[in-house]
């Protein structure tokens, strides 16, 4: 009865629905939250959703990781290595960009004592 869940098309359906829901949860957070740190957290949730989407859509049932070992001598029946390589570098960039955004937030808090973007009116005049 549950063999239905071992189908690649079903797994891709779950991945598309789940990661897109996660992406729009992050979108809702960016649109509604007012605290700078909460906005950065929402941004990172959107990023995680994209990583899951990219890696997940290249997984098929029966394929193995693209690494050779004692019992595996040829590069056949393996998942696509290109999205993994791209996402690998993107995660590291994500951390550096997160640190940059957080340092902007800290500097703004040190200058004004506020962390709320709805009260950001220093450039109004």
């Amino acid at each position: 009865m549950l063999e239905f869940f071992n189908d690649t098309q079903t797994i891709h359906f779950i991945i598309i629905v789940g990661s897109m829901s996660l992406f729009f949860i992050g979108f809702y957070g960016i649109a509604t939250q007012k605290n700078l740190v909460k906005i950065l957290v929402s941004f990172d949730i959107m990023e995680s959703a994209l990583f899951l989407f990219f890696i997940g859509l290249h997984y098929k049932v029966g394929l193995v990781a693209p690494i050779l070992d004692k019992h595996l001598k040829t590069f056949t029946n393996m998942v696509d290595p290109v999205p993994q390589a791209m996402i690998l570098t993107t995660i590291v960039i994500g951390l550096a960009v997160l640190a940059l955004g957080l340092s902007f937030g800290i500097e703004y808090y040190k200058l004004t004592g506020r962390n709320d973007i709805s009260k950001m009116n220093e450039l109004r005049d």
Partner: peptide, 15 residues
């Protein structure tokens, strides 16, 4: 956990 299931151990380690 999901990256490990999707056969991407490099990305799982990084994450």
């Amino acid at each position: 956990v999901l990256f490990f299931i999707f056969q991407a151990p490099d990305v799982a380690l990084t994450e």
